[in-house]
Computed example of a mutant assay.
Amino acid sequence: MKLLNRVAAVVLGAKLVTLAVNLVTFPRLKPGGRVKAARVSLLIPARNEEGNLARNLPALMRQGASEVMVLDDQSSDATAAVARAAGAAVLAGTPLPAGWRGKNWACHQLARAARGDVLVFTDADVQWSPGALDAVVTQLQDTGAGLVSVFPRQRNESMGERLLTPLVDNVLLSLFPAPLLRVPSAAASAANGQVMVFRREAYQQSGGHAGVRGELLEDVQLGRKVKGSGERLALALGADLIGVRMYGSYPQSVVGFAKSLPGFHGNSRAVMLASWALYFITYTLPLFHRHGRPLLVAALLEGLLVRRITGRTKPADLLELLLTPFLPLLALPVFQRASRKEVEWKGRKYAQDRRL
Protein backbone atom coordinates (compact mmCIF):
# COMPACT_ATOMS: atom_id res chain seq x y z
CA MET A 1 0.00 0.00 0.00
CA LYS A 2 2.87 2.40 0.71
CA LEU A 3 4.15 1.95 -2.83
CA LEU A 4 0.71 2.67 -4.28
CA ASN A 5 0.46 5.77 -2.10
CA ARG A 6 3.79 6.99 -3.43
CA VAL A 7 2.63 6.42 -7.00
CA ALA A 8 -0.56 8.40 -6.35
CA ALA A 9 1.41 11.17 -4.65
CA VAL A 10 3.77 11.50 -7.62
CA VAL A 11 0.86 11.63 -10.08
CA LEU A 12 -1.06 14.21 -8.09
CA GLY A 13 2.06 16.27 -7.41
CA ALA A 14 2.94 16.45 -11.10
CA LYS A 15 -0.63 17.39 -12.02
CA LEU A 16 -0.80 20.12 -9.38
CA VAL A 17 2.43 21.66 -10.67
CA THR A 18 1.08 21.60 -14.22
CA LEU A 19 -2.17 23.22 -13.09
CA ALA A 20 -0.26 25.95 -11.26
CA VAL A 21 1.64 26.71 -14.47
CA ASN A 22 -1.57 26.76 -16.54
CA LEU A 23 -3.34 28.96 -14.02
CA VAL A 24 -0.83 31.66 -14.93
CA THR A 25 0.00 30.92 -18.58
CA PHE A 26 -2.93 29.26 -20.39
CA PRO A 27 -4.50 31.78 -22.82
CA ARG A 28 -8.17 32.73 -22.45
CA LEU A 29 -10.28 34.33 -25.14
CA LYS A 30 -10.99 37.98 -24.48
CA PRO A 31 -13.74 40.18 -25.94
CA GLY A 32 -13.04 43.32 -27.91
CA GLY A 33 -10.53 41.96 -30.41
CA ARG A 34 -9.50 44.06 -33.39
CA VAL A 35 -9.63 41.92 -36.51
CA LYS A 36 -7.49 42.90 -39.47
CA ALA A 37 -9.23 42.55 -42.82
CA ALA A 38 -9.96 38.88 -43.41
CA ARG A 39 -12.60 36.83 -45.14
CA VAL A 40 -13.82 34.33 -42.57
CA SER A 41 -15.71 31.11 -43.32
CA LEU A 42 -17.67 29.53 -40.45
CA LEU A 43 -17.95 25.82 -41.23
CA ILE A 44 -20.21 23.37 -39.38
CA PRO A 45 -20.25 19.62 -40.07
CA ALA A 46 -23.66 18.28 -39.07
CA ARG A 47 -25.16 14.79 -38.96
CA ASN A 48 -28.57 14.60 -37.27
CA GLU A 49 -28.02 17.90 -35.47
CA GLU A 50 -31.41 19.60 -35.84
CA GLY A 51 -31.69 20.21 -32.08
CA ASN A 52 -28.23 21.70 -31.64
CA LEU A 53 -28.52 23.80 -34.79
CA ALA A 54 -31.87 25.22 -33.69
CA ARG A 55 -30.27 26.31 -30.41
CA ASN A 56 -26.84 27.47 -31.57
CA LEU A 57 -26.90 28.41 -35.25
CA PRO A 58 -28.75 31.76 -34.86
CA ALA A 59 -25.91 33.05 -32.66
CA LEU A 60 -23.37 31.89 -35.23
CA MET A 61 -25.23 33.74 -37.96
CA ARG A 62 -24.80 36.97 -35.95
CA GLN A 63 -21.02 36.64 -35.58
CA GLY A 64 -20.30 38.62 -38.76
CA ALA A 65 -18.58 35.87 -40.77
CA SER A 66 -18.26 36.31 -44.52
CA GLU A 67 -20.11 33.02 -44.95
CA VAL A 68 -21.68 30.39 -42.72
CA MET A 69 -21.87 26.91 -44.23
CA VAL A 70 -23.45 23.75 -42.85
CA LEU A 71 -22.56 20.35 -44.32
CA ASP A 72 -25.59 18.08 -43.99
CA ASP A 73 -23.87 14.72 -43.63
CA GLN A 74 -26.71 12.52 -44.89
CA SER A 75 -28.88 13.28 -41.86
CA SER A 76 -32.14 11.46 -41.23
CA ASP A 77 -33.67 14.42 -39.37
CA ALA A 78 -34.40 18.05 -40.27
CA THR A 79 -30.77 19.22 -40.07
CA ALA A 80 -30.80 20.79 -43.55
CA ALA A 81 -34.17 22.50 -43.10
CA VAL A 82 -33.19 24.00 -39.75
CA ALA A 83 -29.91 25.30 -41.18
CA ARG A 84 -31.63 26.89 -44.17
CA ALA A 85 -34.27 28.49 -41.97
CA ALA A 86 -31.51 30.13 -39.93
CA GLY A 87 -29.98 31.56 -43.11
CA ALA A 88 -26.91 29.34 -43.49
CA ALA A 89 -25.69 27.97 -46.81
CA VAL A 90 -26.32 24.22 -46.80
CA LEU A 91 -24.19 21.68 -48.62
CA ALA A 92 -25.49 18.18 -49.20
CA GLY A 93 -22.82 15.74 -48.11
CA THR A 94 -21.79 12.97 -50.46
CA PRO A 95 -21.45 9.30 -49.36
CA LEU A 96 -18.54 8.47 -47.09
CA PRO A 97 -15.59 7.08 -49.10
CA ALA A 98 -13.65 4.04 -47.93
CA GLY A 99 -10.91 4.89 -45.43
CA TRP A 100 -12.51 8.12 -44.23
CA ARG A 101 -14.14 8.97 -40.88
CA GLY A 102 -17.42 10.83 -41.12
CA LYS A 103 -16.46 14.16 -39.57
CA ASN A 104 -13.19 14.34 -41.48
CA TRP A 105 -15.00 13.81 -44.78
CA ALA A 106 -17.60 16.44 -43.89
CA CYS A 107 -14.93 18.99 -42.96
CA HIS A 108 -12.97 18.20 -46.12
CA GLN A 109 -16.02 18.97 -48.24
CA LEU A 110 -16.62 22.20 -46.34
CA ALA A 111 -13.03 23.33 -46.82
CA ARG A 112 -13.24 22.73 -50.57
CA ALA A 113 -16.40 24.82 -50.84
CA ALA A 114 -15.31 27.64 -48.51
CA ARG A 115 -13.96 30.89 -49.95
CA GLY A 116 -12.47 32.42 -46.80
CA ASP A 117 -8.88 33.25 -45.92
CA VAL A 118 -9.68 31.99 -42.41
CA LEU A 119 -11.44 28.64 -41.97
CA VAL A 120 -13.31 28.23 -38.68
CA PHE A 121 -14.55 24.67 -38.08
CA THR A 122 -16.99 24.37 -35.20
CA ASP A 123 -19.27 21.61 -33.96
CA ALA A 124 -23.03 22.08 -33.88
CA ASP A 125 -23.17 21.76 -30.09
CA VAL A 126 -20.78 24.67 -29.50
CA GLN A 127 -22.35 27.90 -28.21
CA TRP A 128 -20.91 31.18 -29.51
CA SER A 129 -21.54 34.37 -27.55
CA PRO A 130 -21.47 37.86 -29.16
CA GLY A 131 -17.94 38.84 -30.14
CA ALA A 132 -16.56 35.29 -30.02
CA LEU A 133 -15.60 35.14 -33.69
CA ASP A 134 -13.71 38.44 -33.48
CA ALA A 135 -11.90 37.09 -30.42
CA VAL A 136 -10.73 33.85 -32.07
CA VAL A 137 -9.67 35.53 -35.31
CA THR A 138 -7.80 38.18 -33.30
CA GLN A 139 -6.08 35.35 -31.41
CA LEU A 140 -5.08 33.80 -34.73
CA GLN A 141 -3.68 37.06 -36.08
CA ASP A 142 -1.97 38.23 -32.89
CA THR A 143 -0.19 34.92 -32.31
CA GLY A 144 0.82 34.48 -35.95
CA ALA A 145 -0.40 30.90 -35.68
CA GLY A 146 -1.48 28.66 -38.50
CA LEU A 147 -4.05 27.07 -36.19
CA VAL A 148 -5.77 28.24 -33.03
CA SER A 149 -7.78 25.55 -31.27
CA VAL A 150 -10.25 26.57 -28.58
CA PHE A 151 -11.46 24.51 -25.63
CA PRO A 152 -15.01 25.73 -24.91
CA ARG A 153 -16.23 26.14 -21.36
CA GLN A 154 -18.37 23.18 -20.28
CA ARG A 155 -21.96 24.33 -19.74
CA ASN A 156 -23.43 21.24 -18.14
CA GLU A 157 -26.98 21.36 -16.83
CA SER A 158 -28.16 17.88 -15.86
CA MET A 159 -26.51 15.58 -13.32
CA GLY A 160 -25.84 12.99 -16.02
CA GLU A 161 -23.75 15.50 -17.97
CA ARG A 162 -21.68 16.34 -14.92
CA LEU A 163 -20.50 12.80 -14.24
CA LEU A 164 -17.83 12.57 -16.96
CA THR A 165 -17.64 15.66 -19.16
CA PRO A 166 -15.53 17.70 -16.66
CA LEU A 167 -12.74 15.19 -17.32
CA VAL A 168 -12.14 16.91 -20.67
CA ASP A 169 -10.83 19.98 -18.88
CA ASN A 170 -8.88 17.91 -16.39
CA VAL A 171 -7.03 15.90 -19.05
CA LEU A 172 -5.92 19.02 -20.91
CA LEU A 173 -5.07 21.32 -18.04
CA SER A 174 -3.45 18.88 -15.62
CA LEU A 175 -1.38 16.99 -18.20
CA PHE A 176 -0.40 19.61 -20.79
CA PRO A 177 1.46 22.73 -19.58
CA ALA A 178 0.79 25.58 -21.99
CA PRO A 179 4.50 26.54 -22.38
CA LEU A 180 5.08 23.10 -23.92
CA LEU A 181 3.62 24.48 -27.17
CA ARG A 182 6.84 26.45 -27.62
CA VAL A 183 8.79 23.22 -28.06
CA PRO A 184 9.41 22.79 -31.81
CA SER A 185 8.55 19.09 -31.84
CA ALA A 186 5.18 18.23 -33.40
CA ALA A 187 4.65 15.75 -30.57
CA ALA A 188 4.31 18.69 -28.16
CA SER A 189 0.81 19.46 -29.43
CA ALA A 190 -2.79 19.49 -28.31
CA ALA A 191 -5.98 20.50 -30.10
CA ASN A 192 -9.75 20.25 -29.83
CA GLY A 193 -11.97 19.55 -32.84
CA GLN A 194 -14.88 21.49 -31.34
CA VAL A 195 -13.28 24.75 -32.50
CA MET A 196 -10.39 24.79 -35.00
CA VAL A 197 -9.41 28.12 -36.60
CA PHE A 198 -6.98 27.88 -39.53
CA ARG A 199 -5.28 30.25 -41.87
CA ARG A 200 -6.17 28.70 -45.22
CA GLU A 201 -2.53 28.39 -46.28
CA ALA A 202 -1.66 26.55 -43.07
CA TYR A 203 -4.63 24.21 -43.51
CA GLN A 204 -3.61 23.34 -47.06
CA GLN A 205 0.09 23.04 -46.26
CA SER A 206 -0.60 20.59 -43.42
CA GLY A 207 -2.78 18.39 -45.64
CA GLY A 208 -6.02 19.42 -43.94
CA HIS A 209 -8.62 16.80 -43.07
CA ALA A 210 -7.53 14.71 -46.03
CA GLY A 211 -4.25 14.12 -44.22
CA VAL A 212 -6.07 12.65 -41.19
CA ARG A 213 -8.90 11.00 -43.09
CA GLY A 214 -8.79 7.73 -41.13
CA GLU A 215 -8.35 9.22 -37.66
CA LEU A 216 -11.08 9.31 -35.02
CA LEU A 217 -8.83 11.58 -32.93
CA GLU A 218 -8.35 13.89 -35.89
CA ASP A 219 -7.97 17.12 -33.91
CA VAL A 220 -4.74 16.18 -32.13
CA GLN A 221 -3.30 14.78 -35.36
CA LEU A 222 -4.19 17.97 -37.22
CA GLY A 223 -2.43 20.01 -34.56
CA ARG A 224 0.68 17.88 -34.97
CA LYS A 225 0.59 18.17 -38.74
CA VAL A 226 0.22 21.94 -38.63
CA LYS A 227 3.14 22.21 -36.23
CA GLY A 228 5.15 19.68 -38.23
CA SER A 229 4.69 21.76 -41.37
CA GLY A 230 6.50 24.65 -39.72
CA GLU A 231 3.43 26.64 -38.67
CA ARG A 232 2.72 27.76 -35.15
CA LEU A 233 -0.01 26.09 -33.09
CA ALA A 234 -1.89 28.08 -30.44
CA LEU A 235 -4.52 27.12 -27.86
CA ALA A 236 -7.07 29.09 -25.89
CA LEU A 237 -9.84 28.51 -23.39
CA GLY A 238 -13.32 29.66 -24.44
CA ALA A 239 -13.86 31.57 -21.16
CA ASP A 240 -17.13 33.56 -21.33
CA LEU A 241 -17.23 33.62 -25.12
CA ILE A 242 -17.43 29.99 -26.29
CA GLY A 243 -19.16 27.18 -24.43
CA VAL A 244 -20.45 23.70 -25.16
CA ARG A 245 -22.94 21.08 -24.02
CA MET A 246 -21.26 17.96 -25.30
CA TYR A 247 -23.63 15.23 -24.14
CA GLY A 248 -27.09 15.33 -22.61
CA SER A 249 -26.72 12.27 -20.36
CA TYR A 250 -24.30 9.83 -18.79
CA PRO A 251 -24.95 7.09 -21.42
CA GLN A 252 -24.26 9.57 -24.22
CA SER A 253 -21.02 10.56 -22.49
CA VAL A 254 -19.93 6.92 -22.31
CA VAL A 255 -20.48 6.43 -26.05
CA GLY A 256 -18.83 9.73 -26.97
CA PHE A 257 -15.72 9.33 -24.86
CA ALA A 258 -15.29 5.69 -25.89
CA LYS A 259 -14.90 6.89 -29.47
CA SER A 260 -11.86 9.01 -28.66
CA LEU A 261 -10.25 7.05 -25.83
CA PRO A 262 -8.31 4.52 -27.96
CA GLY A 263 -6.55 7.28 -29.88
CA PHE A 264 -5.33 8.83 -26.63
CA HIS A 265 -3.76 5.49 -25.72
CA GLY A 266 -2.13 4.52 -29.00
CA ASN A 267 -5.00 2.10 -29.79
CA SER A 268 -3.58 -0.27 -27.18
CA ARG A 269 -5.80 -2.22 -24.80
CA ALA A 270 -2.84 -2.76 -22.47
CA VAL A 271 -2.14 0.97 -22.25
CA MET A 272 -5.82 1.69 -21.62
CA LEU A 273 -5.90 -0.90 -18.85
CA ALA A 274 -2.77 0.55 -17.25
CA SER A 275 -4.23 4.05 -17.54
CA TRP A 276 -7.44 3.05 -15.79
CA ALA A 277 -5.50 1.20 -13.06
CA LEU A 278 -3.38 4.29 -12.38
CA TYR A 279 -6.53 6.38 -12.30
CA PHE A 280 -8.08 4.00 -9.74
CA ILE A 281 -4.94 3.94 -7.58
CA THR A 282 -4.75 7.73 -7.55
CA TYR A 283 -8.36 8.73 -6.91
CA THR A 284 -10.39 5.80 -5.56
CA LEU A 285 -8.03 3.60 -3.54
CA PRO A 286 -7.21 6.36 -1.00
CA LEU A 287 -10.81 6.07 0.22
CA PHE A 288 -10.06 2.64 1.66
CA HIS A 289 -7.04 3.19 3.89
CA ARG A 290 -6.29 5.50 6.77
CA HIS A 291 -3.31 7.20 5.15
CA GLY A 292 -5.28 8.23 2.08
CA ARG A 293 -6.66 11.52 3.41
CA PRO A 294 -3.82 13.75 2.12
CA LEU A 295 -4.22 12.17 -1.32
CA LEU A 296 -7.96 12.88 -1.31
CA VAL A 297 -7.27 16.49 -0.34
CA ALA A 298 -4.77 16.81 -3.18
CA ALA A 299 -7.28 15.31 -5.64
CA LEU A 300 -9.93 17.80 -4.55
CA LEU A 301 -7.43 20.65 -4.91
CA GLU A 302 -6.68 19.42 -8.42
CA GLY A 303 -10.37 19.59 -9.36
CA LEU A 304 -10.72 23.01 -7.76
CA LEU A 305 -7.78 24.40 -9.76
CA VAL A 306 -9.20 23.01 -13.00
CA ARG A 307 -12.47 24.81 -12.35
CA ARG A 308 -10.68 28.00 -11.37
CA ILE A 309 -8.74 28.01 -14.65
CA THR A 310 -11.80 27.34 -16.81
CA GLY A 311 -14.07 29.71 -14.90
CA ARG A 312 -16.50 26.96 -13.87
CA THR A 313 -16.96 28.14 -10.29
CA LYS A 314 -20.74 28.16 -9.78
CA PRO A 315 -21.97 26.12 -6.79
CA ALA A 316 -23.21 23.29 -9.03
CA ASP A 317 -19.80 23.14 -10.72
CA LEU A 318 -17.99 22.97 -7.39
CA LEU A 319 -20.29 20.23 -6.12
CA GLU A 320 -18.89 18.03 -8.91
CA LEU A 321 -15.77 17.75 -6.76
CA LEU A 322 -17.62 15.34 -4.47
CA LEU A 323 -17.58 12.82 -7.32
CA THR A 324 -13.77 12.82 -7.54
CA PRO A 325 -13.08 9.47 -5.75
CA PHE A 326 -15.77 7.75 -7.81
CA LEU A 327 -14.73 8.99 -11.26
CA PRO A 328 -12.61 5.91 -12.09
CA LEU A 329 -15.64 3.71 -11.44
CA LEU A 330 -17.89 5.99 -13.50
CA ALA A 331 -15.33 5.92 -16.31
CA LEU A 332 -14.99 2.14 -16.32
CA PRO A 333 -17.80 1.63 -18.90
CA VAL A 334 -15.96 4.03 -21.21
CA PHE A 335 -12.80 1.94 -21.05
CA GLN A 336 -14.78 -1.25 -21.55
CA ARG A 337 -16.58 0.10 -24.59
CA ALA A 338 -13.37 1.54 -26.03
CA SER A 339 -11.77 -1.93 -25.91
CA ARG A 340 -14.20 -3.33 -28.49
CA LYS A 341 -13.08 -4.10 -32.02
CA GLU A 342 -15.53 -1.56 -33.38
CA VAL A 343 -16.54 1.88 -32.18
CA GLU A 344 -19.82 3.51 -33.11
CA TRP A 345 -20.50 7.19 -33.60
CA LYS A 346 -23.35 9.07 -35.27
CA GLY A 347 -24.85 5.84 -36.56
CA ARG A 348 -21.63 4.67 -38.22
CA LYS A 349 -19.36 1.84 -37.11
CA TYR A 350 -15.59 1.99 -37.47
CA ALA A 351 -13.23 -0.95 -37.13
CA GLN A 352 -10.33 -0.25 -34.79
CA ASP A 353 -6.79 -1.49 -35.26
CA ARG A 354 -6.20 -2.67 -31.71
CA ARG A 355 -2.87 -3.66 -30.22
CA LEU A 356 -2.40 -5.61 -27.02
Score class of each variant (00 low, 15 high):
150 V>I: 14
287 L>K: 03
41 S>K: 00
58 P>E: 05
88 A>P: 00
59 A>S: 15
76 S>L: 14
318 L>I: 10
201 E>W: 00
9 A>Q: 14
201 E>I: 00
301 L>P: 05
39 R>P: 02
35 V>G: 02
139 Q>N: 08
70 V>G: 02
57 L>R: 07
217 L>T: 10
144 G>D: 04
78 A>G: 09
12 L>R: 00
10 V>R: 15
151 F>Y: 15
316 A>I: 14
123 D>V: 00
337 R>L: 06
67 E>A: 06
168 V>W: 05
101 R>Q: 10
24 V>Q: 09
284 T>I: 02
42 L>P: 07
30 K>V: 13
290 R>Q: 11
200 R>M: 12
273 L>T: 09
308 R>C: 10
283 Y>R: 06
240 D>R: 14
176 F>M: 05
323 L>I: 11
306 V>P: 12
187 A>M: 07
55 R>A: 15
335 F>H: 10
14 A>T: 13
323 L>Y: 07
130 P>I: 03
150 V>H: 11
225 K>F: 13
332 L>D: 12
51 G>F: 10
256 G>H: 11
174 S>R: 03
172 L>C: 06
302 E>M: 14
273 L>H: 03
287 L>S: 08
95 P>D: 13
84 R>G: 13
126 V>I: 09
97 P>A: 02
38 A>S: 15
294 P>Q: 08
187 A>K: 05
325 P>T: 02
198 F>I: 01
125 D>A: 04
354 R>H: 13
98 A>H: 08
111 A>I: 01
310 T>E: 08
252 Q>A: 15
70 V>E: 00
149 S>E: 07
292 G>A: 09
84 R>S: 15
176 F>E: 05
179 P>F: 08
65 A>H: 07
194 Q>K: 11
86 A>P: 08
157 E>F: 10
329 L>S: 14
34 R>W: 01
181 L>V: 09
210 A>V: 02
98 A>P: 03
166 P>L: 06
56 N>M: 09
159 M>S: 12
9 A>I: 06
82 V>D: 08
191 A>W: 00
117 D>P: 01
96 L>W: 08
203 Y>L: 07
185 S>E: 07
196 M>W: 07
201 E>R: 02
326 F>A: 14
204 Q>F: 04
88 A>S: 07
40 V>C: 12
133 L>E: 05
33 G>A: 12
350 Y>Q: 04
65 A>N: 05
169 D>P: 05
289 H>M: 08
351 A>E: 14
168 V>F: 09
16 L>R: 04
324 T>D: 04
259 K>A: 14
153 R>F: 06
356 L>Y: 05
151 F>I: 06
209 H>Q: 06
162 R>K: 15
247 Y>E: 02
257 F>Y: 14
111 A>L: 04
202 A>K: 00
24 V>C: 08
150 V>A: 05
195 V>T: 01
212 V>N: 01
10 V>I: 15
256 G>Y: 09
101 R>K: 13
261 L>D: 01
196 M>F: 12
26 F>K: 01
197 V>S: 04
271 V>K: 13
203 Y>D: 03
61 M>R: 13
297 V>W: 14
255 V>Q: 14
115 R>L: 01
157 E>G: 10
321 L>G: 09
309 I>E: 13
51 G>V: 12
337 R>C: 03
236 A>Q: 04
18 T>N: 08
9 A>P: 05
285 L>N: 07
142 D>A: 14
277 A>M: 10
265 H>W: 11
9 A>S: 15
196 M>K: 00
343 V>R: 00
243 G>I: 05
175 L>A: 10
